[in-house]
Design a protein around this nucleic acid. Sequence first.
DNA 1: TAATAATGTTAGATGAAACTAATTTTCCAA
DNA 2: TTGGAAAATTAGTTTCATCTAACATTATTA
Lengths: 152, 152
Amino acid sequence: MKERVSGALESYLEQIADLQQEHGAVRTSDLAERMGCKRSSVTNALQRLSEKGLINYQSYRPVTLTPDGEKTIAALSRYHRILADFLATILAFPEEFAQQEACRLEHRVSQCTIERMQVYLDFVGSGAKNTASEVNFSQFKKFLKSSTDKPA
Amino acid sequence: MKERVSGALESYLEQIADLQQEHGAVRTSDLAERMGCKRSSVTNALQRLSEKGLINYQSYRPVTLTPDGEKTIAALSRYHRILADFLATILAFPEEFAQQEACRLEHRVSQCTIERMQVYLDFVGSGAKNTASEVNFSQFKKFLKSSTDKPA
DNA sequence: TAATAATGTTAGATGAAACTAATTTTCCAA
DNA sequence: TTGGAAAATTAGTTTCATCTAACATTATTA
């Protein structure tokens, strides 16, 4: 197993992957904006990511992911997907909130729990046999509306 | 609202509350053992908690919670309870794992999400009307067994 | 009750992650 | 083509949370 990288660095890595898709090249300023921090903090993070072999980094040059970086991202974004899906599909949060919350949780929730959420999702989505679960979802939304909980 | 204290300090505070219940007095070594860190780190944490007005601390004396500390603990342990309950009751994890995971998550999961988990629990537990949900739980456990997921 | 073991604290170092201010590099437009 | 603006980096500081090693205090027990 690869030695898990810190939550902060993981976030940088994700934004790098995102920006790469959107703009091809990844610029320090854009990263800073996304991360809500100063450019100098980004440089520092890039250097640490580079030391860990997750990105290719040289001063003043555009950043790219290494194969290891790609792998890390793949796992992470799967985690993110499952979490967001769970929050939206089971707990009935709006997509946007589910995304945000997934961002904050994906670095902390254990793999085990995430896999279990996926199983729960599979279970609920296991259609035909189990229409009760679909019924439950809409029932839950009604129940939610009638509860004192303010919608997110 | 009170200024949220860091996750690490929150953990110390919880263990302090725990130990207080168990042994009356709270000793540095016990805390260190619980937290899996050195005694000196505990001292450091105690000093910071004290500065924030959450505990009464003087060198070489037993530690007690301030009223503010008590309040913080109350909120935290409610979060913990809901999380652990959700993990055990909805995701069908063994109690012990649910407890551990709750410890790690309670400092990160947003209040909003935790409240929603409580609503979901209420919904599922809303007995009579909704026996479908109880059925679902045992169905889920079967489903789980048949999936490739290793039990925690 | 004095010596020793156990417990607790201080001081100083480290690493992560942020910041500001100063400097360097790159790039574009006159 | 060069000179200034934008972008990026460096240097140095801060805070948090940990560590080790050394020192201080309390407790035990011979």
